[in-house]
Design a protein around this nucleic acid. Structure first.
Lengths: 205, 205
DNA sequence: TCCATTGTTGACCAAATGGTCAGGATCACG
DNA sequence: CGTGATCCTGACCATTTGGTCAACAATGGA
């Protein structure tokens, strides 16, 4: 158990922890926390099960590490909203960035989806804490623009929820989207102009 | 094993099967298929575990029965779109009905969410079969209205996806929505005008 | 080269869990 | 009220699975 705080990781530790987290991301995003087994994670990581448990004390530990590690990356686009930018451009850039994340990081999207569906046992404090703060900040910026008449007035919190819902849908419900569209369609290519158009109309003054 | 086809169910069979499905809906929607145990289902149903397995051969059987039974109800609102109705009213009625379902049947919404996240192992044929047919029909109606200039032209399939995403988000991600909004907010009361307003703008000619 | 630290694993364990079964309780109906 | 069908359960089983451990291998600095 290499759990001393601040102990700088050796090269091997760094590499194997990365392998494990990578394998676990695949396993958890495919089967959920309960559905993924340590054996699956070990195999995906190319390590033996005891070795996985050598680097992380418990399966839960791996899961928690993944979630908290990836949360920052997941929320990064929202922080980049610039209060001094052109309102509509800023929102559209955020929307586009979120759709990019769904396209490039579907495993991460599903990981979070499982966690929230489950009732967010590991993230509940964060949801009501720092995430809420982040959203409130972004909502305040949006509200400011609306007050200035530079965006159509809509509820900023629900505007943000709608962006999350619309973009993450294409990662989380990928199978359904593809099944319904049938072969010969690229969901993301089609979704991009649709969603962009949608927010242009919603937010046009 | 009471599995003869067409055998009419006795009163007791009817009641206990209903109890089991009800308990299983709660358990599966809370923990997912893998996460829910037969014991949990039995307890939620107020029956013993062997008795549960007396009415359904396997846990998988319960799950499959639930999914296929509830799918019709879940898709019903889409079928009610009336080609002869007023286009915008019809769409808004569908949106409102879907939001009602999220509010009144969040367990069902989560059940399906888990299934799709999992890769839809039980629903894959249906997704690409009858569901796809249903969506294509609805999309054709929408496209017709757009061609007549009675709705703004947007991709009808992705319009439908957006309605699913926006409405189901409030059921599936309930914890997140509530955590971010904080106490003293009713997500659904707020979401209703927001989403209605959104589609009015998107579809206005 | 030496050796303490770090890394790795086969074998194993206890608990959880899906499912079985023999036998007893209850019900429905002639 | 008798009896066959239906209903119910305690006890049990096999498998899966998270996690442990003793022993062995590799590493790297002095």
């Amino acid at each position: 158990m290499a759990d001393q705080p601040d102990a700088p990781l050796t090269r091997i530790q760094q590499k194997n922890r990365d392998l494990i987290l990578e394998g676990a991301l695949t396993a958890f995003s495919l089967h959920g926390f309960r559905g993924a087994t340590v054996d699956q994670i070990a195999e995906a990581a190319g390590l033996s099960k005891p070795n996985v448990l050598y680097y992380f004390a418990t399966k839960d530990d791996i899961h928690k590490t993944l979630l908290t590690t990836l949360l920052d990356m997941w929320l990064a686009p929202m922080i980049r909203i610039d209060p001094n930018g052109e309102p509509l451009d800023e929102v559209l850039a955020y929307v586009s960035a979120k759709l990019d994340m769904s396209q490039r990081f579907p495993r991460e999207s599903r990981l979070f989806a499982y966690e929230i569906l489950q009732g967010a046992p590991h993230l509940s404090e964060i949801l009501g804490g720092s995430l809420r703060g982040l959203v409130d900040t972004a909502a305040a910026i949006l509200q400011g623009w609306m007050d200035q008449g530079r965006l159509a007035p809509v509820d900023p919190h629900h505007l943000i929820f709608s962006i999350w819902a619309l973009t993450q849908h294409y990662a989380d419900f990928d199978v359904q989207v593809r099944a319904v569209l049938g072969p010969g369609h690229d969901p993301f290519i089609e979704a991009r102009p649709f969603i962009g158009d949608l927010y242009r109309k919603v937010l046009a003054v």
